[in-house]
Design a protein around this nucleic acid. Sequence first.
DNA 1: CTGTTAGCGCTTTCAC
DNA 2: GTGAAAGCGCTAACAG
Lengths: 347, 347
Amino acid sequence: MDKKKETITIYDVARVAGVSMATVSRVVNGNSNVKPATRKKVLGVIEQLGYRPNAVARGLASKKTKTVGVVIPDISNAFYSEVTRGIEDIATMYRYNIILCNSDLQQERETQLIETLLEKQVDGLLFLGGNVREEHLRIYEHTNVPVVLVATKVEDNALPAVGIDQHEAAYDATVHFIQGGHKKIALIGGPLTDLVKGYPRYIGYKHALEEHQIEFDEHLIRIGDYRYDSGYQAMSTLLSLTDVPTSVVVLSDEMAVGAIHAILDNGKKIPEDIEVIGYNNIPIASQVRPLLSTVDVPMYDLGAVAMRLLTKYMHGEEVQTGQVTLPHSLKLRSSTRPLGSIEGEQS
Amino acid sequence: MDKKKETITIYDVARVAGVSMATVSRVVNGNSNVKPATRKKVLGVIEQLGYRPNAVARGLASKKTKTVGVVIPDISNAFYSEVTRGIEDIATMYRYNIILCNSDLQQERETQLIETLLEKQVDGLLFLGGNVREEHLRIYEHTNVPVVLVATKVEDNALPAVGIDQHEAAYDATVHFIQGGHKKIALIGGPLTDLVKGYPRYIGYKHALEEHQIEFDEHLIRIGDYRYDSGYQAMSTLLSLTDVPTSVVVLSDEMAVGAIHAILDNGKKIPEDIEVIGYNNIPIASQVRPLLSTVDVPMYDLGAVAMRLLTKYMHGEEVQTGQVTLPHSLKLRSSTRPLGSIEGEQS
DNA sequence: CTGTTAGCGCTTTCAC
DNA sequence: GTGAAAGCGCTAACAG
């Protein structure tokens, strides 16, 4: 029997089972007020007819879609895909579906995606990375859909957010080198106009130097786009300095791997000649030689906590705006020397 | 004025603009049969009220959601995320939205996701990688929703699919080594029970040897799970052979990078001592030292072509079942020696 | 060009 | 426990 073509509805099930639509609806939704015998009969008919509930109709009638929208800047970025894993696991647990959308780092597309998601009547929205702009805020203001930011934040903490302390993480990485006796510590960072990552991390680096009376030297600063090539480029120019740095804090693992290769291609040794520390601890950090020391960011947890927060929010619980800060740590591998093994090569 | 709380509908717009719902619907949907003046007025009211069309209601009424579901085995796999890019670009072009779902390689979840997507009334379905099982086929049989497979296929070519010739690609890689004078060519592959990738690639390798009268040696075969660690492991055991291979075909780039590191950690040189060739040409292939030679698979195009095919299918055009095969090639970098530079070290 | 009128398939009071 | 009936917000004939 070919079940193609004819869509079978709750009405069909009701008719065949000899009950009302309401009853069928009750058993489909696990409502307890149904006599076991009736339930069994209905379930049988559902099976027999191959009935599949229409989520669109349900969404319209109940004004709930059990769906949350996730806007992600770049799906091929390991950081975000790991965060997404955390989101998905918790969403599955609470029986929410995810609509994952890729903004591809384009602002226009970002706004458009949020609009589309709202049109689709998602019950909640997770916005990852990227900059939250005026435009977004205006959209959020005019909707009742709960929004949680992940790995980004907004001025005035107007929205709930989950992230780490970017300033402190960069500070910690820099201090590690200072404690190792380094004086010439270079930085390969992100655009300083990026108020979420680039700038606060830069300031963290700077503060570390200041607090330890190390002179800040702007020649040791390079700005990349967080990707491999820019890390390679940046490191290459650093290597051409007359006074080559003895260590470098790189504010993304991908750039750090690029930097490592630039150093290696230059004939220098890691960590003997130059030590490198990355940021995020994505898989590639342990798939490169030497193994990359890096700031360990709890990516999965970022997603999981955010999704958990969102479920509370969607269920009407009060949710604080402002950031929930998750802990980070330093994951030391072989692109840095163990502390205590300092030789005297930095003047 | 706070637009929160009250949902404003097409009816509100109609009332304020002094027209009928039908007219509002027409302008929202870009129907040309509206007097410019009327259109303008309606548009004004929409703007003023901040009206946002309800896609759920529209979906119910029109029986079209302009949404396609994409089931992907692993979002953190670079291969699939690149394919997804291709899908997204074409989808955007044809004004379709994407619901991206991650099955996490779990079969049960795969089936469940397909069901959910169907409940959500997607207009089409793209199924990436993974094995298409009986269970799926049964679901597909009972629905009118067009399905296109990407980077996988099914027995009897029962469904339209887009992919490359796996057999030939592995064959080509192997032949490259044979032409380079190699006799001891190892293979790090995937499970032979995997009829989509593992097995056909293995057969491609085997055929290449056979056709060139090179003895097949099962000691040179290792099976991994396509990931870094398994590549490292596999290569390590290959390295401990009394008769170490002089070249190795690795059926995923991640495993290939693992293999490279195993070789390097073993103190051997690439490509001088051992040549390595990978598979897929994901970004990491050009972010490793030495740069990885690999089978260049048109990942983006796989996605783009599949999505294009699906749009045709959704628009009622006849679509052939069976695979559309896209071309692949060898991308030679520095983990292999240039052909013609053969020295005599293979006996 | 524009309005009227049925539904789309389901949930949800409100009765019984 | 179960049913009847009123929508949810929108589209799509059909009329005019």
